[in-house]
């Protein structure tokens, strides 16, 4: 870090790559998200037995990860941001699954 100079900032150039792939990419992602949401809603109306819960969880996670990677640009962004965010996310999942497990939550019918 240097606090001395009046500098021309060059750090922003990294953004130009986003400008590269036009906005259509984002529309596609949004479309996919909409379809997945529709699928989720549909699932909750038809009876598919035991596969329902796992399938729903998978769809939910796909949507989650898609927004984080594409809309929040994490896919193209620095590794460090991945570490910071996912460590919070995975820690939350681990801790709260443990928390619910101590209440025998997952043994309920």
């Amino acid at each position: 870090m240097s606090t001395t100079v009046e500098h021309a900032t060059t750090g922003h150039d990294s953004h130009d790559e986003h400008a590269g792939h036009g906005n259509s990419h984002y529309y596609l992602v949004a479309l996919a998200l909409a379809i997945l949401t529709g699928l989720e809603v549909l699932l909750s109306y038809v009876d598919i037995g035991k596969a329902f819960l796992p399938l729903l969880m998978i769809l939910m996670m796909i949507k989650f990860v898609m927004v984080v990677l594409e809309f929040m640009h994490l896919r193209k962004d620095a590794k460090l941001f991945h570490y910071l965010f996912w460590s919070g996310f995975l820690l939350a999942i681990a801790v709260y699954i443990g928390f619910l497990a101590t209440f025998k939550f997952f043994l309920q019918p």
Binding site: M1, S2, T3, T4, E6, H7, T9, T10, G11, H12, S14
Partner: peptide, 8 residues
Amino acid sequence: HGHGGHGH
């Protein structure tokens, strides 16, 4: 002045 900008 370098407090918070990228690149520095």
